[in-house]
Design a binder for these strands. Structure first.
Lengths: 198, 198
DNA sequence: GTCTATAAACGGATAGAC
DNA sequence: GTCTATCCGTTTATAGAC
């Protein structure tokens, strides 16, 4: 019904490339693979894109823009730190559900892509994400919602890793919903797996 | 003092390759990269190894053999499930400390390598690891050490992912020791990050 | 927007000299 | 154990026809 109802050829090709990059890796995917999956020849791809690199660039930058816009919305809302933490975790699992290929590419290829100047913005996004979580966790400790003896930096890494690494096994539509998985993860993260009575 | 005091050329070359595979990825590392880092030419590598594939094969299979031997020792010991879980977590962080390159290669390349027949043993090791954790977690729930409402499968993935993904940021000798990190992770995993009083 | 044809570079691997 | 020299398949990318 909106402008997205008719995806452009460019968008279609990017979706095809994203799936291949996610499944086989950026370096393991050839432009011929992408072209074949799209039903055209490799030379034709260059009518749409400068290079294979610019394809993954557009995939990642578009996704990151959307993702961080939704984080910003949570940050700007008027709820306490613990609620914001919960919302950011749920939002991340929703992103894995909606954009599994983009998340996988970022998880698997960011370290390699960062060695190129043009992907410097990925480092900026990492810093932005770090700031977000460190702020929320520090607030949570100050307000007494989180334990005072937490190592905030380590906890940040713990949350970041556990959330995003789920893209390795989560498959939309199979098993638990992303909401159910977020519930379970939040329960473990906030309350632990041990019985309190010992 | 033992046989390991004088590393063979073969072992040296594997260590150099492991670092490159871990840092840049298997596919992104050329045999010329490995040779250059070793101070020789690429052709000379083939005096020691059949192929680039057989290099990563030897790196991974050697490491996995050691790792699973130490898991077996924990399993065979006469302590309760919770203690075994703690020991397996500590043991894993120790492995990251001692063999960061090998762990990184397994984490980053296993999915790709598994598409080749010769790396089928990696799937066997994955199954072995899964069995180990599922057994310990089920025992923990039965004995009342772990919460009865746990989703054991999800908890297994949660533990596996959080432990091994640390290889992405942990650097031996910098910041916390691997023992300190294991302590923190176990505290979060077992007791959560929230204050119990609310 | 796609195809044909091909350039140009890269990368794994080999044979034989030293 | 390493080097020289090189083969050959693969891959990214380009130019111009349709």
């Amino acid at each position: 019904m909106t402008a997205e109802a008719a995806p452009t050829r460019r968008t279609e090709l990017l979706a095809i490339a994203a799936q291949l990059f996610a499944d086989k890796g950026f370096k393991n995917t050839t432009v011929r693979d992408i072209a074949e999956a799209a039903g055209i020849l490799s030379g034709s791809l260059y009518h749409h894109f400068d290079s294979k690199e610019s394809m993954v660039d557009e995939i990642l930058s578009t996704f990151q823009e959307q993702l961080f816009a939704s984080y910003d919305a949570v940050l700007a809302s008027d709820v306490d730190a613990r609620t914001k933490i919960e919302q950011c975790v749920r939002l991340s699992f929703a992103a894995i559900d909606e954009h599994p290929h983009e998340v996988a590419i970022f998880q698997n290829e960011a370290a390699y892509l960062l060695t190129f100047d043009r992907f410097g913005y990925l480092a900026d996004r990492n810093a932005q994400s770090r700031n977000l979580w460190m702020t929320l966790l520090t607030e949570g400790v100050s307000s007494g919602a989180l334990r005072g003896d937490l190592d905030v930096t380590l906890t940040y890494r713990f949350i970041r890793d556990t959330v995003w690494v789920a893209v390795r096994w989560y498959r939309p539509g199979a098993g638990h919903s992303h909401e159910a998985i977020a519930d379970q993860y939040l329960t473990i993260l906030l309350d632990g797996i041990a019985t309190t009575g010992g």
